[in-house]
C-alpha cells in the first residue's frame, strides 16, 4: 500500500531527495546517456558518421554481440558467466562449413549447429550445477571448443557459398540487414522472457539469493542448466550469422568475442553478481562498444588504441555497475523514517 509521507522532516528534505533521485538516475541510465552523447559528438565531428550506411553497418557488426548478449544477460542474472561463447562460435563456424560441404541441406545444418550449441551449453550448465565455478567450467570450454574446431578443420577456413547463408549474412528485408532482423527478434523474445515469464523471474531470483530461491522451491538446477543452454544456442545462432557474413567456416571465428559480449552486458547495467538484469541495457552496451570503435576509426585513430579505449570503458562501466550503483542506491534509500517503527 502506497502512503504519502507528509511529515515536516520529509518536506525539508525534498530537494535533497531530488538530488538523490538524480544521482540514482545518472548511475542507472549512465550508459544510455553516454551512448547518446557519443553519437551526438561523432555526428558533429564526422560527416560520415550519421549516414544510414554507417549506422546500419555498425548495427550489423553489433548484431552477433547482441544475439549472444541476450543469452549472457540470463546467465549473469543467475550470477553466472559464460566465457565459452566465442569458441562455440568458432566450433559452429567449422561445423557449418563442414556439413554444407558434405552436402546437407542448409536449413538442416542450421538446426543441427544450434542443437550442438544448446547441448554444449547445457553440458556447461550441468557441470556448473555440480559445484564447479562457472568461470572455470566455461574457461575450460573456451579452450576445448575452439580446439575441437581446429581438429575438425585442420586449421583451415572453408568457403561457404550457399545462397541461404548469403541471405543470412549479407541479405536484407526492405533494406534492413538480415543479421539486424535476427538480432531484433532475439532481443524482443529475450526481453519478454526475462520480464514477463516465470523463467525470467526465477533466473533473477536464483542470482539474487540462491538460498531464498531454493527454500521457496524453485528448481535451481534446471534454471541454471537452461540459461547456459540458451546461451549456447544463441552463440551457435551468432556463429551461423558470422560465418554467413564472412562466407567461410573458420576455427578463428569469434576470437575474443566472449569479452565483447560480457562487456556489452555489464556496460548495459546487468549486475555481475546476479539478480539484476536488463536486455535493453545489453543492446545499448553492444551498440556503445561498436559505435565507439566506429567513431574512433572514422577519425583515423590507430586501431590498437581502440582496443585500449574499449578496455578503459569496460573498467569504468564495471565501476559504475558495482561500486557507484551500490552507493547511489544505498544513499537513495537511506531514509531515516523507514526504520522508525510507528505503533498506535
Amino acid at each position: 500500500m502506497t502512503h504519502a509521507k507528509t511529515t515536516p522532516t520529509s518536506r525539508a528534505a525534498a530537494p535533497f531527495l531530488d538530488m538523490r533521485k538524480a544521482a540514482v538516475f545518472l548511475v542507472r541510465y549512465g550508459m544510455f546517456i553516454a551512448l547518446a552523447l557519443w553519437m551526438l559528438a561523432m555526428s558533429l565531428t564526422s560527416e560520415h558518421f550519421l549516414t544510414s550506411t554507417n549506422l546500419l553497418n555498425v548495427a550489423r557488426q553489433a548484431a552477433p554481440i547482441v544475439i549472444i548478449g541476450v543469452g549472457m544477460t540470463f546467465v549473469m542474472a543467475t550470477a553466472g558467466i559464460d566465457l565459452s561463447v566465442g569458441s562455440l562460435v568458432a566450433l559452429v563456424s567449422v561445423l557449418t562449413a563442414a556439413w554444407l560441404v558434405a552436402g546437407l541441406p542448409p536449413l538442416l545444418v542450421i538446426a543441427m549447429v544450434i542443437l550442438v550449441g544448446v547441448m554444449l551449453g547445457a553440458l556447461n550448465g550441468a557441470i556448473i550445477t555440480l559445484g564447479v565455478p562457472a568461470f572455470v567450467v566455461t574457461l575450460a570450454a573456451l579452450t576445448s571448443f575452439r580446439g575441437v574446431g581446429f581438429v575438425i578443420s585442420e586449421g583451415r577456413a572453408v568457403p561457404i557459398s550457399d545462397p541461404i547463408f548469403a541471405f543470412i549474412g549479407r541479405g536484407d528485408v526492405l533494406g534492413i540487414n538480415t543479421p539486424l532482423i535476427i538480432a531484433a527478434v532475439v532481443v524482443v523474445v529475450g526481453w519478454f522472457v526475462l520480464n514477463r515469464t516465470r523463467f525470467g523471474l526465477y533466473a533473477l531470483a536464483t542470482g539474487g539469493r540462491e538460498e531464498a530461491a531454493r527454500v521457496m522451491g524453485l528448481a535451481i538446477t534446471k534454471i541454471k542448466i537452461a540459461v547456459y543452454a540458451i546461451t549456447g544456442g544463441l552463440a551457435a545462432l551468432a556463429g551461423v550469422v558470422i560465418s554467413a557474413r564472412l562466407s567461410n567456416g573458420s576455427p578463428n571465428a569469434g576470437m575474443m568475442l566472449e569479452l565483447e559480449v560480457i562487456a556489452a552486458v555489464v556496460l548495459g547495467g546487468t549486475s555481475l553478481f546476479g539478480g539484476r538484469a536488463t536486455i535493453a541495457g545489453t543492446v545499448v552496451g553492444a551498440l556503445l562498444i561498436n559505435f565507439v570503435r566506429n567513431g574512433l576509426n572514422l577519425h583515423g585513430v590507430n586501431p590498437y588504441w581502440v582496443q585500449v579505449v574499449t578496455g578503459v570503458i569496460l573498467v569504468l562501466a564495471v565501476l559504475m555497475n558495482t561500486v557507484l550503483n551500490r552507493r547511489a542506491e544505498a544513499w537513495a534509500r537511506a531514509n531515516p523514517e523507514d526504520d522508525r517503527e510507528v505503533r498506535k
Binding site: L204, A205, G208, A212, M216, L218, G275, R276
Partner: peptide, 21 residues
C-alpha cells in the same frame, strides 16, 4: 526463515508470490 529468505533485488510482490505466481 530467520533471514526471511527474500530475494533483495525482487519486488515485495515478486517475493510474496515467488514459486506460486
Amino acid at each position: 526463515y530467520q533471514d526471511f529468505a527474500l530475494v533483495p533485488e525482487l519486488t515485495v510482490t515478486q517475493n510474496i508470490f515467488l514459486g506460486r505466481e
